[in-house]
Design a protein around this nucleic acid. Structure first.
Lengths: 208, 208
DNA sequence: CTTAAAAAATGAACTCATTCAATCTTTTTC
DNA sequence: GAAAAAGATTGAATGAGTTCATTTTTTAAG
């Protein structure tokens, strides 16, 4: 009743995910063969496909874990943000970017993004999109919070502005992972410049 | 001397690109096999690979042609834009979006975008990125032009603001092609709302 | 015109992601 | 506790993209 079967299933699932994540980090996504992942997880190739629809799904699963952590880290900033829009955005976005390469390589990000675009109906792609939505909401929430505090002019559409900030930081993150040579500092600098007009203007005339 | 060889090469290249574009439209990207493309172009599979590094490259080549047309269409608007920032942006972005599905399906866009992210070093991916850059410049140019006219406040960073508008419209276009159910009208509506805060604020106090 | 060198075309062979019919394991039924 | 049903595992087979040694075609040299 307790489920030997359920236990085995959870265990296999964990082993497969761990094996895949390790291999991706070690040899990169493309060079990691399903056969190798299966062997390391001590299951057959067929079993791999009982747990994940395809090779990409398991990468997006790894990305999901990472984004969950980013969201948690972002929450601490949204809960008690700096006083100005510029500082608050810099803090939140910096948090996002700094966390992005802890577990995943640029190559893994590229692949995950590519999959989420190419197969939008797959379960894990839906999940990726959902996580993106939560990140976007977090930015909007930050703007709305600053608006309540008076750091953002009343009458501004906090949601629309937040979405714009998010879409911008997200698009620039794509540029970042596409360019192996680009550093995190460069990325932050560019996004900072792009955000400045909107960040300054929604703050109103009081503060610069 | 004139080059029988060069002539044949150009001819084969044209045939391959045409065959691929036709097939993609007829049966979709995934179902179009290299063997079929090669057969229709009257070359061998190996020859296909002498002209294009992989299956994705040829799709990005097709997309490139499309974007060139979009750029040309956008130029007419940038050359003589409407008076206000809001109207000008709506016109330019509407032009972009309306043109996007004339030759390419959402599926083809998804695949092309996925490739350009996943294999950023391939020649045609570089080309795609370059075209994106030119589109971005076009938006910045529009803002700069309006600024000269006095429709945008002096002191605003036209390039930064333009990049933000572009990144936003580009990101939302990705959302659009990911969702088969989303219509062009819905897309325009959402982007309009997102752009409004920045568009209104950079216009200055004179006009709303 | 002949021959050597360079460039390009070719398609069979290879790699890997993915599938599926057969087999094995766990759970349920009586 | 034996037998049937349900649920999972398995790995050989499949199929499509890609490679590469060989052959063919074009150009350059003598």
């Amino acid at each position: 009743m307790t489920g030997l079967r359920a236990k085995q299933k959870a265990d296999r699932n964990r082993r497969i995910l761990q094996a895949a994540t390790d291999l991706f980090r070690e040899v990169g996504y493309d060079s990691a063969r399903i056969e190798d992942i299966a062997e390391r997880a001590e299951v057959s190739v067929g079993t791999f496909y009982n747990y994940y629809q395809n090779k990409g799904d398991i990468l997006v699963a790894a990305v999901s874990m990472e984004v969950e952590e980013v969201l948690a880290a972002g929450k601490t900033i949204v809960d008690s943000p700096p006083d100005t829009v510029g500082e608050a955005l810099t803090a939140l976005i910096g948090q996002y970017y700094d966390h992005s390469l802890v577990y995943l390589s640029k190559e893994m990000w590229r692949t995950a993004m590519a999959i989420s675009i190419q197969q939008p109906e797959s379960p894990f792609s839906r999940r990726y999109t959902e996580l993106d939505g939560r990140l976007c909401d977090q930015v909007s929430t930050l703007i709305a919070k600053l608006q309540l505090r008076g750091a953002v002019m009343p009458g501004i559409d906090a949601v629309g502005a937040g979405q714009m900030f998010f879409n911008n930081l997200n698009m620039m993150f794509i540029e970042f992972v596409k360019d192996e040579a680009m550093t995190l500092d460069t990325l932050k600098e560019i996004v900072g410049r792009q955000n400045r007009p909107l960040a300054t203007l929604i703050s109103g005339p009081k503060r610069q």
